[in-house]
Amino acid sequence: MDYKSDKFFEQVLTVSMEKDRQSINIIDQTLLPGTIRRINLSTKEEIWEAIKKLRVRGAPAIGVCAAYGIALLASRIQKEDFSSFYQEFGELKNYLASSRPTAVNLFWVLNRMDSAVKKNEEKSVNEIKEILFKEAADIREEDVQISRKIGEYGFGLLKERKKEGKEIGILTHCNAGTLATAKYGTATAPMYMALEHGWAGEELHVYCDETRPLLQGARLTAFELHHAGIKVTLQCDNMASILMKSGKIDIIFVGCDRVAANGDAANKIGTSGVAILAKHYGISFYVCAPSSTIDMETPAGDKIPIEQRDGDEITKMWYKERMAPEGVDVFNPAFDVTDHSLITGIITEKGICHAPYDKAFKELGIGR
């Protein structure tokens, strides 16, 4: 693969609707980087399981998958009157919404699809089904454009730091790359935009936290950036401090799954630790957040629900033999919340926001 080849984005395409509209096609991210396998999801159980088990992951990609999923499932509802159709649609919507509690895009997309149904109540059920397919396709295309815009704003920050003959050191955590979105990613979008603006991959040096316990940085971010031709170094999460102290990091880009109205941001577990270290070492820490992840109904981060995951992800998932005693208690939250005071700026597709974040969001028309 090569970023300048169309095959790069073809191979890492996260979610698409099959031409016959009978299934959704995804890249199974649980198998990366060792195996690149695309699978089809055709039942509600398969779609729910793919989101829950992180076969498709990343807030925007989850949203696109949910949009295609609800459109596909709604197309099979065998009801011709609106009331009966809408009742069954609501049941399907609630079922998919139960797969991941933290990613606000999931609920945002499902509510948008719900609104598309209600706004067209006077039309036939068959017409509504077609409208849902179109709405899902629009959501995917909008996500591509959102990532590009976030990338352009982030690229502007990279240009400010560019010095002749010196690579720019970038740290990122988890995977907020093209594998987490429809295309380009959020936290990786500035790097892809740099390539599109003619920068060489060697001008950037991205350091990926491995991101325990599911290793999305090691398996996914390192995988896609390496194949895009960008210089990548992988390190364990607890090596971030010595790396920052060495002076090799110029800027940090991370993604997020939900941003509260005050700017607190929920992202993959370990992100808040990176932010605390960045504050100590005086390194700019940016959260890359599509406006759809900004939840103005949630006043602060302590109100964001944090998903607790199976302890096997820590004790045995990555090992030939169990690495912890049988019966030991395991604490395995999927996310933590980075306090807004630790965030230099939040990059949205509408612009870069700075504290006070609630005011900045409103000035950009977010959450109105």
Rank of each mutant, 00 (worst) to 15 (best):
I314V: 13
Y86W: 11
R112H: 15
K123S: 12
T43Q: 03
G229H: 00
K159I: 14
R140M: 10
F133W: 14
I131R: 04
K52G: 04
S272T: 14
V287N: 08
I51T: 03
I269R: 07
G151L: 07
I352F: 10
T221D: 02
P33M: 00
E203D: 15
V64E: 09
V206Q: 00
P290G: 09
G185H: 02
E203H: 13
M191Y: 02
R112S: 15
S83H: 15
T181I: 07
F335E: 00
M113P: 04
T348C: 10
E141Q: 13
G327F: 05
A261S: 15
W108A: 10
S16N: 09
K268A: 01
I51Q: 01
E49R: 06
V206A: 00
T188Q: 03
K4Q: 09
G185N: 04
I168A: 03
A50R: 01
T211K: 00
E196R: 14
I168V: 09
I304Y: 04
D20F: 10
P356Q: 10
N126C: 13
V274T: 00
A176R: 00
D138M: 08
M193G: 10
A261P: 12
A200E: 13
T298G: 12
Y3L: 01
F107R: 13
V104T: 12
D310P: 08
W48R: 09
A260I: 09
R55L: 01
W48Y: 14
Y95M: 07
G229V: 08
D310W: 10
V254Q: 01
L110Y: 12
V328K: 14
E127G: 05
D6V: 04
M296E: 04
G217T: 03
L204D: 00
K44H: 11
G345M: 01
G351Q: 14
R212A: 03
S341A: 15
I283R: 04
D2Q: 11
D28T: 03
K245P: 08
V64L: 05
L195A: 02
V330P: 08
S98K: 15
F331S: 12
F9T: 08
G151S: 06
A289L: 09
I62V: 10
K303P: 01
E326F: 08
I242E: 10
G301N: 03
Q308Y: 07
L158C: 01
G367L: 06
M193V: 12
A136S: 08
F253Q: 00
I62Y: 07
K159E: 15
E326Y: 11
A180D: 02
V12I: 14
E45S: 08
N111F: 11
T30M: 12
V104D: 07
S99F: 07
A66R: 06
E326Q: 14
W199T: 01
L364D: 12
R322P: 10
A67T: 02
W199I: 07
R309F: 09
M1H: 06
S124I: 11
L158P: 12
E224F: 01
G156P: 03
T172H: 00
N175E: 00
I146Y: 07
K19A: 14
D81L: 02
E121A: 13
L32C: 11
V328F: 09
S5T: 08
